[in-house]
Each structure stands twice: as structure tokens, then as C-alpha cells.
Simulated scan of single mutants.
Amino acid sequence: MKGKEKIKVGITIGDLNGIGGEIILKTFEDNRMLDFCTPVIFASVKTISYLKKHFKFNLNFNGINTIDKIVHGKINVFNAWNEKYNIEFGKENLKSGELSIKSLKEAVKYLKSGDIDALVTAPINKHNIQSEEFKFPGHTDYLAQELEGNSLMFMVTDTLKVGLLTDHVPVNDVTKHISEKLIKNKLDIINLSLKQDFKVRKPKIAVLGINPHTGDNGVIGKEDDEILRPALSKIREKGMLVFGPYAADSFFGSNNYKNFDAIIASYHDQGLIPFKTLSFGNGVNFTAGLSKVRTSPDHGTAYEIAGKGEADENSFKQAVFTAIKIFKNRKEYKNLTKNPLKPKQKKI
């Protein structure tokens, strides 16, 4: 079984001065992970050797310079650069940002070509990645450009799934971005994702209001009445099972979220604060709406604990498992839609 071809999961190293390298190697130090996938880490042999020694990890890896040298049953390290970089745990610098983007660009190149099947990204620093060659606020916007699609940040566990209407947008700009077109677009993405990526036959989706108490009939803002409710009404008329808008302050505390397959929040913190509170480090950030599968852990670079051996790898491990599951589900969904089951003809 060890040598059998498995799903090839490309892994970006993230910010080298953060916890990315640690959580990646902690995940694959457990040799059983190689029964589920073949990992390809985009970094350098020198970097991974340093991390292995620093953290005293008991693992072996296969260094490669060309993608056709991937070996199934082993941890593969693709040399995305050959220069030496002295890791300074917990420090932000431009070089670390530059190398994290090199890792990302190489991985995406082979994801697009089909040489790897899915992508799992370790955390980056959104500040030190900025350059003349890379002017994106993070992974999601770059991947939306490269992977043909309208992306949606979808935070998922087995029991809770939260999508966002607006993601990395300043709070005072949120309402400027929300329109009937955006609402329809994001709900179409989340509805299809639930079907093809998570095997939900008839998704039920809840939508959280834009303003406190969904505007209280216009007393605390008119956007819910003038934009959100009319848009949801039109979407419902077309058969999608979408409900709301619900007042966000009581929606999760009342356990109402358990009645739905997914929830869509109007802005970043409205959705991510309850998600991260309820998921306890088991959450995964999945970019829905793209032509390829990409997941990541639900946390950042954690400079404050970098290099100390204290990082919890569970969210990263869940991101790997989720990427594998979604890749398989998509393949099955594609086959089913290509060859739908036909009802049996009655004999006359």
C-alpha cells in the first residue's frame, strides 16, 4: 500500500519565521498520514533540514528539483529556492515574505497543471508579502485570479460551516460592498459547494443580517430592508433554500445554527468570531468557488510561539484531511452529473 499512488497534496511553507514549518512537520511526523496522501512541501531541502533538526522531528523526506520526481509513500520537498535563509522565529522581515510567495507561486503552478491534486497553505504574514510582483491582501484574492473563479471564504468543520459575503474589508466599507449581485453570487457559490464538496443534496442556508437586530425596521440602518431582504426573496423564488436575515447576536448562542447546512455572515468578524469560538482549533479555511481545492488552518503565523515547539498542528492536519475529502467528493459529483442515474423503465 505504501507505494500506491495517492492524492498529491501540495503544501506551501508559509512565513518561515512563523509556525508554518512546525505544524507541517508535526502533521507528517505521524507516518500514518502517508496512507491518506502524498505530501509535496514547496520550500527547500535546506529549510526543512533546519526545521527537522531544530524541533528534533523524527522523519525522513525526499528532496526533488522537478515535479516528476515525486515519490508516493514519502514526504516530498520541492526546492522552490536554493538560497540559504536563516530563520529568525517570531520576527517579521521582507525576505521571509518573499520566500513564502515563492512557495505559493510554485505550488499554484503545479496545481494548475494537475501535477498536484489539492493545495494546503500554511499561514503567511499579509504585510511582508507585499511587493511590486505581489499586490494581494492574502491567499484568497491571488488564488481567485489564478484558479478561474469567484472565491468565497468558507470556514468549515464537520458540524459548522460559515461563509462570508465580504471578507478582508474594513468595517466602515462593508455596506458599500454589499449588493444584490454580490449576495446572489456568494449564495450560488455556497449552494454549489455544499452539493459538490460536502455531499449535501438540498442545502439549507441561513443568512445573518447586516445591522444589529437586522436593522430593527430601519431604526438601526436600512440595508437589511432595502438590499438583503429583497435579494433573498428573489433567490428563494428560484428554489434555493435560503433563510433569514437573522439577528447575528443571538443566532449562535441559541443553537439556531444547528438547523442549517451553512451560514453566511455579512462581514469577517460577524462570522469568524463565533466560528473560531465554537470550533476550538479544529476549523479549516476552505476557498470555495475555485476550479481547484485549497484549504488552510484557521489561524495565523503565531509569531509569539514560533520556534518553541508549542504550536498545535490539529487545524493544519484537519486542513489536509478536508482537502483530500473535497477532492474526492468533487470527483464523485462530476461523475454523477456526467452520468446521472436514470430511473428504471417499467416493463409493459
Rank of each mutant, 00 (worst) to 15 (best):
M1F: 12
K2G: 15
G3D: 14
G3A: 13
E5Y: 05
K8N: 04
G10M: 06
I11Y: 06
I11N: 03
L16W: 06
L16E: 08
I23M: 06
L25I: 07
L25Y: 09
T27I: 10
F28E: 00
M33S: 09
M33G: 06
P39N: 10
P39G: 11
P39C: 11
F42S: 04
A43V: 01
S44K: 11
V45E: 14
V45R: 06
S49V: 03
Y50V: 09
Y50C: 07
K52Y: 05
K52L: 05
K56M: 05
F57Q: 05
F61Y: 13
G63T: 08
I67H: 05
D68W: 02
F78Y: 15
N79I: 13
A80C: 13
W81E: 05
W81L: 04
K84M: 07
N86H: 09
K91Y: 03
E98L: 04
K102C: 12
S103W: 12
V108P: 03
L119W: 03
T121K: 04
P123D: 10
I129S: 08
S131I: 12
H139L: 10
T140C: 08
L143W: 06
L147W: 05
N150W: 02
N150F: 08
S151A: 13
F154E: 01
M155I: 12
T157V: 09
D158F: 03
K161A: 07
T166G: 10
H168T: 13
H168W: 12
D173H: 10
D173S: 13
V174L: 14
V174I: 15
V174T: 14
K176C: 07
K176A: 14
H177Y: 15
H177T: 08
I178L: 11
K181I: 00
N185Y: 10
N185C: 11
D188V: 14
S193G: 14
Q196F: 03
Q196I: 11
D197T: 02
F198A: 00
V200P: 00
R201Y: 05
G209L: 12
I210H: 02
I210P: 00
H213T: 05
G218H: 09
I220R: 10
I220S: 07
D224M: 00
R229W: 09
P230A: 13
P230N: 13
I235W: 01
R236L: 00
K238L: 12
K238Y: 08
Y246E: 03
A248H: 03
F252I: 10
Y257K: 02
N259P: 01
A262G: 03
I263G: 00
A265T: 10
H268G: 05
D269N: 07
D269K: 03
I273C: 05
F275C: 07
K276Y: 02
T277H: 11
T277Y: 12
L278R: 02
L278P: 04
N282C: 01
V284A: 01
V284M: 01
F286H: 14
T287C: 04
A288I: 00
S291G: 05
R294D: 07
P297G: 04
G300K: 09
Y303N: 08
E304H: 15
I305S: 08
K308Y: 08
G309Q: 10
D312G: 01
E313Q: 12
Q318N: 15
Q318G: 00
T322P: 10
A323S: 15
K325A: 08
I326N: 01
I326W: 01
I326R: 00
R330F: 00
R330I: 02
K331E: 15
E332Q: 15
Y333A: 15
N335M: 13
T337N: 13
